[in-house]
């Protein structure tokens, strides 16, 4: 396995074409555990650590733009334009994970129980890459799959600043991943609700909940998503996950700010 540490984004993308199975290394807090478990075995690691242009936050009025290499710890401290996003970042993993793990790494991996995909989808984000941009609604394509092409590198993510938003998550007590996490965002033109951790195909928009909330329905009376669409593993079955979605939805709506 070889290791490269390019100084520019162009060099990083160019290098990605030189390996049989090249992998970008951002915070490494998914990739390295996956390599330790022999789930990944790249022949070339491209460490992005020196690409300072991919770090930091900036607001342009309508959107909060966060660089792909910004860590969860930084977002939890500095994303004041969207408090729900700060709160979400503060619930990822543990402090040692949060100082290393990055927004771009989380999105490119699209773990079905990761937190950020719920925020990206509910906040109608734009994912900018080295070669274009993706709307959140088109980006996530089933667990561990995204619209990213081979070697395509996320530069930054623009989250639409909502009127109010909140994230509620039922965490697995050991891994801290979401068994069900619900992100609710209110905009002038409607409500968006995204669910992570529970769906059989990864993160999804819960459109029935969006319509019910927009119509003023009491969140406590909104029914669970279809059990057949839920995931199931040793930690939780589909009925339990569907039920957790309703509980997290109530908590999120109750916490809107």
């Amino acid at each position: 396995m070889s290791y490269e540490r390019p100084g520019t984004l162009d060099d990083a993308v160019r290098l990605s074409g030189t390996g049989e199975d090249a992998a970008y290394l951002a915070g490494g807090h998914t990739l390295i555990p996956a390599m330790k478990a022999r789930l990944r075995d790249p022949d070339l690691l491209i460490d992005l650590a020196d690409l300072d242009e991919l770090k930091g936050l900036v607001t342009d009025g309508e959107r909060l733009w966060i660089g792909a290499l910004t860590t969860h710890a930084e977002v939890s401290q500095t994303a004041g334009a969207i408090p729900a996003l700060q709160q979400l970042a503060s619930l990822i993993g543990d402090p040692q994970v949060r100082v290393r793990g990055t927004l771009g790494g989380s999105l490119a991996n699209n773990d079905p129980a990761a937190d950020y995909p719920a925020a990206v989808l509910a906040l109608d984000a734009v994912i900018e890459t080295d070669r274009g941009s993706h709307a959140a609604d088109d980006f996530f394509q089933g667990m561990f799959f995204t619209a990213l092409e081979e070697g395509e590198l996320i530069r930054r993510v623009g989250f639409r600043i909502p009127k109010r938003a909140a994230y509620a998550k039922f965490r697995h007590p050991a891994s801290r991943y979401a068994l069900a996490g619900v992100f609710v965002a209110e905009f002038e033109d409607g409500v968006r609700v995204a669910v992570t951790g529970a769906g059989g195909d990864g993160v999804f928009r819960w459109t029935a909940a969006e319509e019910a909330l927009a119509a003023g329905t009491d969140p406590a009376s909104i029914g669970a998503p279809d059990v057949g669409d839920m995931s199931s593993d040793i930690h939780a079955g589909p009925e339990y996950r569907a039920h957790l979605c309703t509980v997290m939805l109530k908590q999120a709506v109750g916490g809107l700010s």
Binding site: L25, G28, P33, K36, A49, P95, Q96, V99, R100
Partner: peptide, 19 residues
């Protein structure tokens, strides 16, 4: 496996030497 990297605790099992 926590160690301090530039005074910040990190997991040394999830860092490569090159990093």
């Amino acid at each position: 496996c926590n160690v301090l990297l530039d005074d910040v605790p990190v997991k040394s099992c999830t860092l490569l030497l090159a990093q």
